[in-house]
Each structure stands twice: as C-alpha cells, then as structure tokens.
C-alpha cells in the first residue's frame, strides 16, 4: 500500500512539475503583457516535436536544450507579428487570437508530423528502474524532476539577479515607468514571451519522454496550469510554482483513494482555496488589473 501511495505521490509531483513549468510561462506572459496565452499547449507540443526530429541527429541531450529554444524563437516571431498588435486592447482580442492559434498549431503539427502518437526515445540507462522494490522510480522520473528544478532555479536567478529579470519584474507592475526610463519595452515583452515559451517547450520535451508524443500533448496540461496560477495567486511566480506542485500532488494522491475524482479534485481545491483566500495563496490584492 505504501508503495502505491509513494508511486502516486511521485507521479503527482512529476505532473505537478509539468503544471508548474507551463504555469510559470503563462504567468510571465500574463503578468507583463496581460495576455492569457491559450496557445501555450501548442508551443509545448512544438518543443516536443522539434526534439523528436532533432534527437536522431543531435542526440538526446542537445535536443533537450535546443528544441525548446526553437519553440521560443517561433514564439517570439508569433508575438512580434500577431500578439503585439493586441497589447493594450480589450483582453478578449488576445484571448481569441491565442485560442485560434492553439487550433492552428494542432492542425499544423498533424500536417507535418501526423495525427498518430509517436514514441520519443530516451537514453536506455535513464529508462530503467533504480531498484526492484521501487520499480516505478525510473531514472527518467528523477531526471525530469531534476531538470524542472534546474529550469525553475534558473528562471528565478534570471528574474532576481539580471537586469533583464529586474526589468521584467518592474514592468509587471508599471510598464510605463520602465519605458520612461529608456528600456525598450517592445523588446522586453518579446524576450519575456520567449522565456515563457522556452519553459513550455522544455515541459514538452520532458513530457514526450514519459507519455509519448501526439499533437494534443499540451491539451491535458493547459487547464490545470491556469488553475495553478489562480491557486498560487495572480501575479506571484513563487505562488504559481507552489500552485502547480500542489495540484499535481493532490490529484496524484486522490487517484489512490478515489480515482474518478483525479481531475475534479483540482477544481474543488481551487474553489476551497479561493473561498478562504480570494487572491490565492500568494496573491497580493489588486496587483494585476
């Protein structure tokens, strides 16, 4: 029994780590540009497929780093050509735009790589279990958590200690004043968008190694990622991280005792948290208008 709980706890943590990576990217973009990016799952899938095509040529490790970068470059292009025009307008416009983009992504991926699910090869030493007792504890699962931890740590280092990160945080609250201080806020928003998409692409590559690869790979992750943002508190990135891990673990444990409620529990938890803390766990009142 304890093995089952441990297994689902670990599973929940991994799923939560994916939610967190997705949600952190979504949060970055929402906080600085006010855009709710429904196409985020499409970018996740794009990163995964880039890795799928790259890995046979470059090997697993280079693909892991480069494929998300490819997704980020496409992301910046999409931001510059399409999304930028909608800044400062009614959020409905960008909502519709990214919603449409999500469909375009999905069909585009089907067109290029096919609608069927394809396997994504990970190095065999990563795929084998670490011990017989803990059969589910494969190297790849540990590896995924480690990569997510490095990525999140890197993100917080960038935001905390580089001028780019400091300017992103400043712009989250008052972009006009950042602009008046001579910072090119168009470039700032593009880089920030790219950073968010890089995290999505990375989540895609990691998820492909666990789940296999289909054009819809991002679909089951996007709604819980929004929940993670709301649970953590709009505007707070540490909150988003905690929110993602929390809902992953809670739904993982729920699957042991009441597996039918595995998905519903996320929303029940959100409702309960919002009843107690209307701005989420780490949210400041009125930080985001």
């Amino acid at each position: 029994m304890s093995q089952v709980i441990l297994f689902n706890l670990l599973n929940g943590l991994i799923v939560g780590a994916f939610y967190a990576l997705m949600a952190l990217g979504l949060s970055l973009i929402l906080n600085l540009s006010g855009v709710i990016n429904f196409a985020h799952g499409g970018f996740l899938a794009l990163g995964a497929y880039f890795a799928y095509s790259l890995a046979p040529i470059t090997g697993f490790w280079i693909a892991l780093v480069i494929a998300p970068l490819g997704a980020a470059i496409i992301g910046v292009a999409v931001e510059r050509v399409l999304i930028r025009r909608l800044y400062g307008r009614d959020p409905l416009y960008s909502l519709l735009m990214t919603f449409g983009l999500a469909f375009i992504f999905q069909d585009g991926l089907k067109f290029i790589w096919g609608a069927q699910s394809v396997p994504y090869q990970i190095p065999s030493w990563l795929a084998s279990p670490l011990s017989m007792d803990l059969f589910f504890l494969t190297g790849y699962r540990i590896f995924m958590i480690a990569v997510v931890a490095i990525a999140v740590g890197g993100l917080f280092l960038i935001l905390g200690y580089t001028r780019l990160g400091i300017r992103i945080r400043a712009g989250t609250l008052d972009l006009d004043t950042v602009s008046v201080l001579g910072v090119n806020v168009r470039v700032l928003r593009s880089l920030n968008f790219g950073l968010g998409i890089y995290l999505a692409g990375l989540a895609g590559v990691l998820a492909a190694g666990m789940l296999g690869l289909a054009p819809t790979i991002g679909d089951q992750l996007i709604m819980p990622s929004f929940v993670a943002i709301i649970v953590g508190g709009l505007g707070s990135l540490p909150g988003t991280l905690v929110g993602g891990l929390l809902i992953g673990v809670v739904s993982g444990i729920t699957s042991v005792y009441f597996s039918e409620a595995t998905e519903a529990v996320i929303y029940v938890m959100m409702a309960l948290i919002l009843m107690v803390r209307p701005h989420g766990l780490f949210g400041d009142e009125g930080r985001l208008q």
Binding site: I166, L173, L181, V183
Partner: peptide, 15 residues
Amino acid sequence: IFPNLTVEENLQVPL
C-alpha cells in the same frame, strides 16, 4: 517607485 523591487534593483532598471 517600483514597490516590489529593492532600492538597488530600482536603480538597475534604467537604460
């Protein structure tokens, strides 16, 4: 002033 940034960070924002 950026309320969420430290004094030092506020001074690192300008071009």
